[in-house]
Every structure is written in C-alpha cells, then in structure tokens.
Design a protein around this nucleic acid. Sequence first.
DNA 1: CAATTTCATACCACTTAGGTATCAAAGACG
DNA 2: CGTCTTTGATACCTAAGTGGTATGAAATTG
Lengths: 303, 303
Amino acid sequence: MELRQLKYFIAVAEEGNFGAAAERLNISQPPITRQIRKLEEELEVILLKRTPKGAEATPAGQAFLEGARQAMAQIARTIERSQAAQRGELGTLEVGYFGSPIYAVIPQVLQHFRRAMPNVKVSLQRLTKSEQIAALKVGQIHIGFGRYYSPEPGIAVEQILTEGLSVAVPESYDKDPNPKSKLALFSAMPIILFPRFGRPNFADEILSILKREGVDPVIANVTEDVRSALTLTAVGEGATIVPGTVSQFAWPGVRFIALEDLSMECPVNYIYRKSDTSPILRAVQTTLRQYRDEFAATGNPAA
Amino acid sequence: MELRQLKYFIAVAEEGNFGAAAERLNISQPPITRQIRKLEEELEVILLKRTPKGAEATPAGQAFLEGARQAMAQIARTIERSQAAQRGELGTLEVGYFGSPIYAVIPQVLQHFRRAMPNVKVSLQRLTKSEQIAALKVGQIHIGFGRYYSPEPGIAVEQILTEGLSVAVPESYDKDPNPKSKLALFSAMPIILFPRFGRPNFADEILSILKREGVDPVIANVTEDVRSALTLTAVGEGATIVPGTVSQFAWPGVRFIALEDLSMECPVNYIYRKSDTSPILRAVQTTLRQYRDEFAATGNPAA
DNA sequence: CAATTTCATACCACTTAGGTATCAAAGACG
DNA sequence: CGTCTTTGATACCTAAGTGGTATGAAATTG
C-alpha cells in the first residue's frame, strides 16, 4: 500500500466523486480510478460503491476512511514533532549542577529556557564536577553548571555571569563596617568556608581573594555546602562569604552585607561536550548566551 | 512522502545499520540510502547520524521513529477493521421490531447474532410495519421483525420460525378443558384480541383460525398489544390467545394453556430491502438462517 | 598498513506514475 | 422516447521513480 492511495481515497470519499477528487488533487481522473482499484485489490475490500452520480463509501470504506484520516493526521504530527526535535524544541534537557548556583542562577536560567522551549522537559541531577565530566562524556547530561572548572580535553567551559559577593553575619552582629574595610571584620570574626570538595572551588577562590586583600582570616569551619555554612553563621559560629545571589533568599538568623568591590566577584560557568551536536544543547546554548548578554547589559534579566 | 520511506526508515533505525535493514527488507542497500535521503530532504530533518559502524537515529529521528511506528500500526489496524467491516463483523445493526416477537424470539435471535459478531452494535427501534417498510427504503434500518407482512415491491420477507399458540386464562379459571376441545372455552369466555393496528395482524389471524375451527367467539376487547391484553385477562375480562413464546414469561394472575394442534401456529418473519448489499445484512441473514434451521431441527436453539 | 566494514554514488533495466483521448452506462430533460 | 450530460472505466503514451549491480570513499580493525 502507498500513502498516495490513502490520500486519493480520502479525497474521493470526501468529495463523493472521482472527478472532483482529481480536481482537488490537481491530477486527472484516470490515475485516481487506477489507484483506488489497486488499493481495493490489495485489501480485498470494496471501499467505494460506484453510482451514476459518483461514488460513496461502503461500510468497509467508511471504516477505512476513518482510519486513513487518523493515519494521515498521525504522519503530519510526526513530521511536526520531528522538525521540532531538530530545532531542539522537543525532548529532555539533562542538567548536572553543583554548588550554590542552584539557589538562584540555575532556576532563573532554566526558567528562561522553558519559556523559549515549552515542550522540552528539564531533568536536574546533583553531580560533583568530576561526575559532571564523566556524565557529559557518556551523554548522560547535556550541560553542567558550576563555578570553577579545571580545563578538560573535549569539554568546553563558558561563563554565564559573574556576581558580587556578600558577607553573611549572625543577625546579632549589628555593626556595619565602613565601606572601605568590610573585609576587616574577619580580623575580629572567624570565617566559615565551603564547599569542602570539588577543588578548585569557591573556598579556594575566597581564600585567594582574602590573601590578595591582605586579610588573614581565622577559619572556624569548612562545610559541605552553603546551607550548612549559613546555618553555622546563624548560630554565631562565624561569618560566611557567599555569592550575591544567595543573599536574595531569607535565611533566618543571618544578615547579609554586600561587598560592592567589583574586583571581588565569582563566576557561574557551564560546561558541555565539544563534540555534542544535539539540537537540545544548541537550543539551551542559544538561551544561555541571550541570558548572559541580557545579564551583562541590565544586571538583572529575571523578567 | 511515501509509506515505503517510513518502512525503510523504521528498519534502519531498528537495525542500526543500512545493510542489515536492506537484508531485512529483502532489497539491496542503495535504494535504502536513496529513500532515506529523499525522506530527510523532504522533511528538512536529519533523521540518522551515519557512523562508521552503521547509523543511529538523531533526537529528531527518534521522535520520527516513534510516530512512524504508530502510523504503520494505525494503518495495519485500519486494514483489519475495514476487512472486518466488509465481512459484516463491524458496525451497527439497525433493527426495527413490532409486536410480540420482542418478548422472546427477537432477544434470542439477537443473542445468537451478538455471539457470532461481537463487534457489531445492535440498535433497536419499535416501528409499525409501514414504518419499517419506509425505514428500510431509506436505509434507516437493515431489518424488520414482525409476524404478518403484506407483499411490498423491493422488500423481501423470510420466515424465521412458526410457534404454537397458548390460551391465557385468568388464574381463577381452574378447569382445564379436555385436549380435543380447548377452543371450546371461548364459547364460555369472551376473548381479548390484539394488536389493534398494523393489519394484517395477529388478531386477524386468530379470528380466521377460530372461524376455521368453527368457533364463534365473543370479543370482549381489542387492545394495543399483548401486555394490555394479558393485563385484562388477569383481571378476569376474558381469555387471550398468545404466541407460545409469550407464555414463557411469568404474568401475575394469568395461567397459560398450550394449544398443541400444529395447524394452529403463527410465524415470526423478518423483512429486508432486496437491493441492500450491506455486509451487516448479509451477516445477520447468515445468523438468522442458522437459527431458523436449528430451531426447525431442535425446537429450541436457545443454547 | 592491509583488510574489512560501512554508507554513498553512478548507471542500467524495468515498473509504475500521471496525462490524453475515448468509451460505456446511467440518469436528466425536452 | 430519444438525446444530452455526467459519471467512472479503459487504452495507450511519456516520463519519473524504483531496485539492481558495480564501484567508490572513509573509517575502523587486526
């Protein structure tokens, strides 16, 4: 059976007339007669009752018409979906993430993506940086989010944004240090660092910044992640330096003091497999670069 | 697009290999390359990623594969259904009925039919005989059931069975007349006839039988249908002659006395349009003739 | 580095498509 | 009642498309 035959049969059944069907299909009438007859012979079913006024579907033909219409619609849908998939508008975006970007940057970025590609599902999994690399290489994830990545062959790193830092202090701490010496408070208060693993990491970066600024802090603790660190801050164990976006959230018992010095910033990056040509990755990259440019221009592309 | 291309693509995607797909389809490999490429060009979608080891579906190809499989399955189902419809195993049997056969014969007959053709729906409508004729002519019903039909051009009548008669008497009537003169009780008791309309009808037949047997009854009433007649019998207004199958039902206040004389029988017939070639009618006729022969042989084809 | 395996290409024979011209049959109509 | 119109069917032609064989290009494999 050929699709042509379905198409012709539908036309004849709907027009009730071979000639009209031919006109609708922009061909002459004899080919229609031939194709319908071939179809009937192959199915061993009489689909149309020829009358002097035209042709009408037999009960078997009506049953066939119904199914043929559905099949044609199914094929049209399939083409649409396939083309959408090619444009990266369909499927599942597999995301690996690590660390504090999950608190503000990743939700915002993915929100943008979902708005652009409503039919793409997003799947998130928490993975360390080395797990992300491995997952990228086997195609388990399309993209990994994090802050500091070491170069890796076959893996590309791109920056999304850099954000300022904030100091988190216990709510009870009511002295706001003067703008010039905000970091000086670490001489008076021990510091809590995070994360413990995934070097190079945010803790390493903070220590190097502090060293550059001539501060020699007392390290009270090194926690697994930002949540643990802020919990310890809330109970008064010390101060924590966090990325600016983390301070957008309400943490009970914690007060944030922004460090406006632009030389003290931390990045959010994403990594992907260089050889990955999947439409989904291309689509998410398009969104990410848009987001990056918007963020660079306005400082807040949340809208 | 052609169905051939769907078939080839499914084969390649499933085998992961052009050559293996060719083997499975019993053709050589180049035509497959060509058809797949044509398909890809028409859709403007890259469906397969050619690798040195074979070929694998791209995300767009996977989306297409899914839909293509469904479309092929849809077409296969459509062929099945159409062939079933051709055999009269699918659709709706439209039935018109009139009179007392609805109480026993029609249910039994239709039960047989449903067992033979489980996928055919049955639709029943109560129609007078002239309404049946009209409905047959416009194709509103496939078949009409009743007892007595006048000849009508274009309409065929076939008999399903003949059944004996029973006399219904009030429960209080406790004399069982001797076998030879059962009809004689109408000399003592007035008779209730039915139906009032649809001549020639059962009432006419009963009167002619009684006349033939030399009985001249007193007519107490002529009711619309058998139910009304038996209700009047229950309250003692008179006796009613009913088809044997009606006596199978329990009618409170009524007792049935069978008239075993075979010369006193009434038929159940069905009518159909002679020019009706629909598979449904053919199917139901097959069942009806089987039922008729079984009934003639065993007297009770209820099993 | 040669052998193997994979898909792509070129060209051929044959089938099948659609087009034109025409026919046969069944209402429609004066 | 015969003619006209409309319908689908048939015959034949040209052209496009199909599958086959032979062969090539590229990458993997031993």
